[in-house]
């Protein structure tokens, strides 16, 4: 089926089986590889992106539901070459190790900061529930607070 949506500010149309997970359309049809495959069951969060501003685990989101929606991936989080404050904070705190899960965490964090501009540690614990096997959580927490600071929310 034909599905029309906006991705990273650009209008896009794809012709795929409506049950295809959004993740695979993003990665293999549109060739945006920053959104990762981890588990295929919405259990790890590596595939997190934004649909109309909400953090969504795209491995379990059929593409047919994306019709008419605005999708943002890690590639579209910043503006052009300017990094988003979350990416900037991630860089300042030197968060990534292997780096594979990090786009999902940054997308989840960006969505959190839209709702809670200056999250407490408890807000972070309750809302950032992706999995990082390198276990970079300690630096991630610092980076989330730093991003809030960059945004002027503190």
């Amino acid at each position: 089926m034909q599905i029309q949506f906006t991705i990273n500010g650009k209008s896009q149309s794809v012709d795929v089986d409506g049950k295809t997970p959004l993740l695979w359309v993003v990665r293999d049809v549109l060739n945006l590889k920053g959104t990762k495959f981890g588990c295929g069951k919405a259990a790890c969060g590596a595939c997190t992106l934004h649909v109309d501003g909400e953090a969504v685990r795209s491995c379990s989101y059929p593409i047919k539901f994306a019709e008419g929606k605005k999708i943002t991936t890690i590639e579209g989080l910043g503006e052009g070459d300017n990094l988003h404050s979350v990416q900037q904070a991630w860089k300042e705190e030197i968060v990534p190790q292997c780096g594979y899960c990090q786009p999902g965490f940054m997308m989840a964090t960006a969505a959190l900061l839209e709702k809670i501009p200056n999250p407490t540690d408890e807000d972070i614990d309750n809302n950032i529930v992706n999995i990082c096997r390198c276990a970079t959580y300690y630096r991630m927490r610092k980076a989330i607070h730093r991003a809030a600071e960059i945004n002027g929310a503190t």
Partner: peptide
């Protein structure tokens, strides 16, 4: 590899 890893 920091930049590559924050831009995906």
């Amino acid at each position: 590899d920091l930049h590559d890893k924050v831009v995906g």
